[in-house]
Design a protein around this nucleic acid. Sequence first.
DNA 1: AAATAATGTGTTTAATTTACACATTCATTC
DNA 2: GAATGAATGTGTAAATTAAACACATTATTT
Lengths: 244, 244
Amino acid sequence: MPTTKIEAKNSKTFKGLQTEVQSINRIALSVDCVIFGFDENKLKVLLIRSDLKKYHNKFSLLGDLVKPEEDLDTSAYRILKQRTGLNDLYLEQVHTFGAFGRHPAGRVVTVAYCSLINVQHHKLKTLDNELHWHEVDSVSELLFDHKKIFDLCIEWLQKRVQEHPLGLSLLPNKFSLRELQNLYEAILDKKLDRRNFRKKFFSMDYLVDMGEDEQNVPHRPGRLYKFDYEKYEKNKKTWSGIDF
Amino acid sequence: MPTTKIEAKNSKTFKGLQTEVQSINRIALSVDCVIFGFDENKLKVLLIRSDLKKYHNKFSLLGDLVKPEEDLDTSAYRILKQRTGLNDLYLEQVHTFGAFGRHPAGRVVTVAYCSLINVQHHKLKTLDNELHWHEVDSVSELLFDHKKIFDLCIEWLQKRVQEHPLGLSLLPNKFSLRELQNLYEAILDKKLDRRNFRKKFFSMDYLVDMGEDEQNVPHRPGRLYKFDYEKYEKNKKTWSGIDF
DNA sequence: AAATAATGTGTTTAATTTACACATTCATTC
DNA sequence: GAATGAATGTGTAAATTAAACACATTATTT
């Protein structure tokens, strides 16, 4: 049983706290976005080539410092907007990385967000600048601790797509079941049984038949569906069962 | 299709970045710990009465500012150590709260951590100070946005105990199945079938029979078990299946 | 018209989850 | 020490869910 003295109270005055908050003890805070896309049946991530000479040829996540009067979430949306030109992307906070030596420019704690975007809608925008879509399989080295952040976000995504339909925001509004399955296979890095996959999705009963088929495919076209987010929001599951 | 100009590059020099990181754009960063305990078959949370006159009689989570040269995780462990006297508690980061106006003393972004401790081992320490165990059901008003943080951590816990054995760190090393079930019922706020609960836990096959029975219970004593963390770490599941 | 390639569908089996009841053991009470 | 009370400990049947697996259909291409 440890004998350490325990601090019984918050021993600070409000003024003292204000001083600490407003002068000392400050830290730079940043947001880094892991932006996923899905194209050519591959899961991709949007990276930027660092233009700092010190780090030329290294790619990094898209990030920026949080402004002093900006909500943290707003900051993440701002960065997305700046980089992709879009609001209304799926965005979720994943984890905060705060190891002391993680950034060479000084103490920077960064909050990682994952975003999912439909590559089809943004393909043109990345052609002639330093932004590039990379296949997630081939991401090896990134700036600073960005590889660690990226790896955690991949894990997060794999888990999350199994219990939440966020993955669907990587697809066009209308999609075929083949596209959907390709997406899941790409994210989970695993082959799935086509019949069971369909059965599963149909039984969840959130797919709406659009009454149209695919066009311009070199084989029999598949049916197109959209996802009924409204219905999903109403029927969300909560309890899944103890299992580990 | 939006027409916003997209920032193609990180347009900052390293020096410029250093300036931003080291002078302007700094923010106070804190850690707030939601410390769960389990006692008298109730899920409890450790709160502290604010000693700031402005906020007397309000309870708050246990938190402190992150020091400029301290790892974020280290910070959380330090706070736990200061408040409970213990290292080696289960601790996990949950979410970062960064709304601009959340703290009256200035801009403070806080990282919420959940910690689980065995109340039996620490009961005495909280008797004569401002720390109190509260039943989670009866937590209503907390300082600042701490209720929001607390609510999220409860949700987090409910989900997490179903897919990870962290809940067991709320129990003594040796525990009966009844205690285990009471714990799960308290956390999930739901009655569970005793037979199916046992079957489930036995089938996961991580409970080790200690060859002893409960003592000093006013009825037939139950068998005592411990959890085999080593085995769990080896056999961890990963894939669970698409379902939402 | 034939060949190709992917879509679309159903059944059987196994595994898991749920619902449910009675005998056993220890402590307490009379 | 016999009877009572209260919680432990166990098994089975039914229902649901997941897994494995094969063939007919449709549009395109040759």
